[in-house]
Amino acid sequence: MQPLLSAHDLHVSYGAVKAVRGVNFEIRQGEIVAFLGANGAGKSSIMNAITGLVPTSSGQVTFEGRDITGAAPETLAPSGLTLSPEGRRVFGTLSVADNLRMGAFALNDKAALETAYKRVYDLFPILQERKDQYAGTLSGGQQQMLAVGRALMSNPRVLLLDEPSLGLAPLIVDQIFDLILKLRDQGVTLLVVEQNVAKTLQVADRAYVLVNGAVVEQGKPAELTASGTMQDAYLGAN
């Protein structure tokens, strides 16, 4: 089966800093795939390069058989690929509802828009309660829900989640992982970056382990925990 999203020999640099060095991956329809690795391993750089937030130095990203390397970021969400970026980055000076409205920017059909709102409010009832509040006044956990909800508004087929549980209370972390499973059941293919390795390996179908911008191992969670590479990946870079 043709992968839904894939990268071939992907490189990302920031000036002299080589953050991603020749990464390959393939994500198939319906999978939950995780990127694991220590801080600075290049996980966010990969996600940002896929979605055009940072430029790709070389290599190729393919989505549904189309080359999207260097595509304008604004073309991706309407085509079914979006990212909930690291650090939430909600629009703090916009209301919760307006943040969600922006998530579905390309959507003009009133009924489709209502459906999108309803889906997010069903997942996160607190957002409906707070819909007229400025996003900047929400708690960290609520902002994270908003960031994920905003990404869902475009009804993505592939959703990239960059550290969705960063800095959240344990109870809310569990909710985020429940959500990942729930979204998969709704037919969303997920690429997840998480610091919470144990929980991530419980939900992921496959994972890629990154060290210094390169994939050192990939496989099913059981295979990865059995080999010692994972521990090395986290310890090695620290």
Binding site: E74, L76, L83, P85, R89, M102, A104
Partner: peptide, 9 residues
């Protein structure tokens, strides 16, 4: 950047 990510041209 995030505005563009949302599909805002």
């Amino acid at each position: 950047a995030v505005a563009r990510l949302m599909g805002i041209r």
